[in-house]
């Protein structure tokens, strides 16, 4: 009689575990020594739809739906099972109370803050007192194929004199000061960062730094310095050249 109900519970548990453990396990396979958990917030939604999926599966068929409902009907409807009914009602109510308590009790868990990783860039930006049209801006060194090696290496020197404390020797965002900052420095090796962006975007981000971010990018948190105060236009373009060259990514282009 309980078969379907048990089946439902087991199915939900199995899928839950696949996500709960499978994803970090996969992550640990990709990056040894890490255990990248699924964020609770996302897990909740996952579980919601897993439960929905399992229930849909078990109820699309009339008999199966009846069978699933049977124990529920038994417990709540059968006049002879008053005792059991009271227990079930109490357990469910207490569980609900517990969940509510967990949510209202004072918590020291820091509020979740969110920032857009790639906020929309402005169409033009002023740096060194000059306006730059970001829509059309391209890296002047990109076309200079003859001096590419030299320019990229010069960009590398700029990087290692200015950037690598945070963005790391390996350009993986794990420089020796990285864990002191939040948001953590960008990982350029990752396919989700500079590989997704145009060079003009990088030019804007480097030139105006954290304080130049729009509000959705939480400019008050970013420790990225305003590099136009330290570097010349040429140096910034060379660093950009180096970032793509070293990581092997190519900048995004449109058209």
């Amino acid at each position: 009689m309980m078969k379907k109900l048990i089946q439902a519970v087991i199915l939900i548990l199995v899928f839950y575990l696949i996500l709960k453990l499978g994803i970090p396990a996969l992550g640990s396979f990709l990056h040894h020594g890490t255990w990248p958990v699924v964020p609770t917030n996302l897990m909740r939604i996952y579980v919601f739809f897993i439960v929905a999926g399992v229930l849909l599966y078990l109820t699309f068929n009339e008999e199966s739906a009846k069978e699933l409902g049977k124990p529920i009907k038994e417990v709540y409807g059968n006049p002879e099972k008053g005792g059991l009914r009271m227990i079930v009602i109490a357990v469910i109510a207490l569980f609900g109370g517990y969940i509510t308590y967990q949510n209202v009790k004072p918590s020291f868990e820091a509020p979740v803050e969110l920032r857009s990783i790639h906020p929309a860039p402005p169409s033009s930006v002023e740096m060194w007192g000059k306006p730059y049209n970001l829509l059309k801006l391209t890296n002047p060194f990109r076309e200079d194929k003859a001096n590419f090696e030299k320019n990229a290496r010069e960009g590398g020197i700029v990087f290692f004199k200015n950037c690598f404390y945070c963005h790391g020797d390996k350009l993986d965002g794990k420089g020796h000061y990285n864990s002191g900052f939040s948001p953590m420095p960008a990982n350029f090796v990752d396919v989700g960062t500079i590989a997704q962006l145009q060079e003009s975007f990088l030019f804007w981000r480097i030139g105006t730094g954290g304080p130049g971010l729009p509000k959705e990018g939480a400019p008050w948190r970013s420790a990225m310095p305003i590099w136009q105060h330290f570097l010349s236009e040429e140096e910034i373009w060379k660093v950009i050249l180096f970032l793509y060259d070293y990581t092997g990514h190519s900048p995004r282009t449109f058209g």
């Binding site: 992550g27 990056h31 958990v37 953590m184 990982n187």
Partner: peptide, 9 residues
């Protein structure tokens, strides 16, 4: 996770 970027998700 080691940053805001999840290696799997």
């Amino acid at each position: 996770v080691g940053g805001t970027h999840h290696p799997v998700l």
